[in-house]
């Protein structure tokens, strides 16, 4: 066990020495790997943030019923009665005057409202059923949409479906992007390791002649690939955090214009660790393919 550990440690130090021996090449490789990982990683972080934003809003599953402007008291009472019968205590009535008052309190709207000759808002009912399943909401929606006096019924969960569909499309796109860049990363590592093997050809030949096993020859190159991938992953995290730090003030400012306190959250520890592990794995894969091919040629 000790000898095994010692050999791995020696291979690891040899890999570090090889990377350090060509600092410019190593730096350029790390930059390429880092950038290749940053693009899909940024995509995932962005989608994750958007998903979290959607999830906050998705908790509010409601149906808004807007009465006709001239709806009679009897028609309003009928809706009230129906709502109470179907979902007792899970609805509220928003009189048009209250709605106007709320709108006035919204920043920048007071002057606009004051300029209007009369209240343009209708009375409204907000239905918030305890059973907020899509089926129940759809059923309730169908029962009110054609009700007398109701001008417009809005199923507020519909946008969530559209939002989720867009999110799915986004994830698929980023997945494809990640796949392309993963292949790119393997190719970059493959080439770097191939050059290293070529540069070490003499040493490999001698080592084999004096009894080095294939594992002994391969090990430093595997570590080299793993190191490059992992360091590339760290570079990607650095680029990502820098990008978020640059973008966040603008995003926060934009969100505040829409009355939201939304900010882009940086990737967490688990996500960052996965990125480094994935980089290391892809680096190892590139090294494995490269060393196998190069050694086969050398035989």
């Amino acid at each position: 066990m000790k000898a095994w550990f010692r050999q791995h440690l020696a291979a690891f130090s040899r890999a570090v020495r090889r990377l350090a021996a060509a600092p410019l090449n190593t730096l350029l490789s790390l930059l390429v790997i880092g950038i290749a990982m940053t693009l899909p990683a940024a995509g995932y972080v962005f989608l994750d943030n958007i998903h979290a934003l959607g999830a906050d809003r998705a908790n509010v599953q409601q149906i808004s019923l807007f009465m006709e402007i001239g709806a009679s008291t009897r028609e309003v009472a009928a809706v009230r009665k129906r709502a109470e019968a179907l979902i007792p205590g899970q609805w509220r009535f928003v009189p048009r005057d209250d709605a106007l008052r709320q709108l006035k309190n919204t920043e920048g709207m007071a002057e606009i409202i004051a300029a209007l000759p009369k209240n343009p808002l209708p009375d409204a009912f907000i239905l918030e059923p305890a059973d907020s399943s899509a089926e129940n909401l759809e059923r309730l929606y169908e029962q009110f949409v054609t009700f007398p006096g109701i001008a417009h019924a809005q199923l507020d969960s519909a946008w969530i479906k559209r939002f989720n569909a867009f999110l799915r499309l986004g994830i698929q796109t980023v997945n494809l992007l990640a796949l392309v860049f993963a292949v790119g990363l393997v190719a970059v590592t493959f080439n770097t390791i191939r050059l290293q093997v070529m540069a070490q050809a003499e040493e490999i030949e001698v080592a084999r002649l004096i009894g080095a096993t294939d594992a002994f020859v391969r090990r430093p190159f595997y570590y080299s690939g793993i190191l490059q991938g992992a360091l590339g992953g760290l570079a990607a995290i650095f680029f990502l955090l820098t990008g978020l730090a640059v973008l966040n003030p603008s995003v926060t400012q934009l969100a505040s214009l829409y009355g939201s306190d939304f900010t882009l959250h940086p990737p967490g520890f688990v996500y960052s660790s996965l990125l480094v592990i994935l980089g290391a794995f892809l680096g190892w894969l590139g090294a494995q393919l490269s060393v196998s091919l190069a050694l086969r040629h050398m035989k």
Partner: peptide, 10 residues
């Protein structure tokens, strides 16, 4: 040292 590295000697 190379042959001794190969056999994993301390």
């Amino acid at each position: 040292l190379l042959p001794l590295e190969v056999i994993g000697l301390p």
